[in-house]
Amino acid sequence: MSGLHHPDSLPSHQHTGLAGRVHDVLDSADIRINGSRPWDMQIHHPRTLTRIALQRSLGLGESYMDGWWDCDALDELFRRLLRHGANGISQNLLQRGLQWIGQCLFNRQNLHRAKDVALQHYDLDNSLFEAMLDPTMSYSCGYWQQADTLAQAQRNKLDLICRKLELQPGMTLLDIGCGWGGLLEHANRHYGVRGVGITLSKEQAALATQRCAKHDVDIRLQDYRTLQGQFDRVVSVGMFEHVGRRNYSVFMASCAQRLRPKGLMLLHTIGSNVSSHHHDPWIDKYIFPNGELPSCAQISRTAEPWFVAEDLHNFGADYARTLRAWDRNFVSAWPQLSRRYSDRFFRMWRYYLNACAGAFQARDLQLWQWVFSHTGGRQRVYTGAR
């Protein structure tokens, strides 16, 4: 296709109209149309750039899903776009305005809508996630310090969490958004704690119950807002992204009420560099409906009535490596997965994994682990767990 000539493949000095605006963005990021480098876009449809200009992030993702363009190194393409300010123009003024109005009028993560992401994403066939993830079934950032494989990076992450929480035999651990139970299984096996895990995904709950059947772990289909009782430790890994800023204070209050006076809480979450009410339209439509990334300021502001922040650890750069490992596993497993999923799903899933990898490579997204204690609850917290 390198010899293709149409209005979307004009030299930069001839850029005009809607397509020309996209050309200018690509030029600033050193991305060429039908170029020979891995991160260059290979255009197959003459209206690709016009579609992207009109629909921004949604048009970029959907046109890729429809096969209108390809790229050998999607993660690098996104790294370059985000490093050169594309995030600031990923939505037009109408899209941003509608999002702002929606955030003002509706709680997108209320008790009823909170289940949307479970139904659309986490309730996909468990075989998809088993093929993509490591044996612990950890669907969150691995900790790659002193790790060469995805499995080791995820075991490192689980152990890092347990050490930061200062787990001891006989303690009780609440895992909010427990996924497939990997952390609770690890904590029970290696630290002798009794665990309770909650999730809104029926598929996750079924597999987590099966995986933890021989351990002192109770898996429940339950929302964090309906919990009762108290625990020595509270943890939440990769779930806070689904809470939403209108519910941050409720989440922190709920965790404080569930945590015993001298306990510790660890919050592991993807984060944004800036506080915003915006969300990516493509991710919201196809991957994580009603999701919203917090900023440091939003987390600290909503935690401060309840907690002391004992430690904050950022290892977001490790997420790019984790996502690339998931992408390799997904591609390797596709001959088997293709019996259940379409080619369009294949393109959607790879776009998701690589777009996120590029965002972490660009440092547009972060990965934080916060350790909290009750105000005045503890004299000392061990912070040398890394």
Rank of each mutant, 00 (worst) to 15 (best):
L128T: 01
C162N: 05
G102N: 15
G59I: 01
E292S: 04
Q120R: 05
S90Q: 09
N92M: 05
H277W: 09
L158A: 02
L105F: 09
E166T: 00
E203R: 01
R386Y: 07
C356I: 01
H313E: 12
R80W: 03
S90C: 06
W100N: 05
M239E: 02
A325L: 09
F307W: 10
G88L: 08
G61H: 05
Q42H: 12
F307P: 03
A118V: 00
R386W: 05
S332C: 08
C162F: 02
L267W: 00
A317N: 12
Q336Y: 05
V308F: 01
R80G: 08
G195E: 03
R380W: 14
H268S: 08
F330K: 04
F231P: 01
K285E: 04
H44C: 07
A359K: 02
W282G: 10
W370K: 06
L184E: 05
R80F: 03
F129M: 09
N314R: 12
L267G: 12
L221Y: 09
R363W: 08
S373E: 04
F231M: 02
L18T: 00
D72S: 14
H45E: 14
V243C: 01
K202M: 04
H15D: 11
V381Q: 06
R363M: 11
G263Y: 02
N354Q: 15
P46V: 04
L18W: 13
Q99T: 13
Y341M: 02
G17E: 12
I33F: 06
L10E: 04
T199F: 01
M41N: 05
I176D: 07
L200Y: 12
L184T: 13
L323M: 09
G142Y: 11
G88Q: 12
W370R: 06
R301W: 06
E185Y: 02
F307D: 08
G195K: 02
Q379C: 10
N92V: 01
G244I: 05
R113I: 03
L119S: 09
L227F: 12
S249R: 15
V250N: 10
H186P: 04
I219H: 11
W39N: 03
Q210R: 15
D148C: 04
R340G: 07
G229L: 09
Y286K: 00
A325W: 07
G238H: 05
A213T: 01
W370N: 06
A309V: 15
V371T: 07
N329D: 07
L82F: 14
G20H: 12
Q366N: 07
M41F: 15
G291M: 07
S127Q: 14
A208L: 09
R380I: 01
A187I: 01
G197E: 15
S342N: 07
A333S: 13
F106S: 09
I299V: 15
P261K: 14
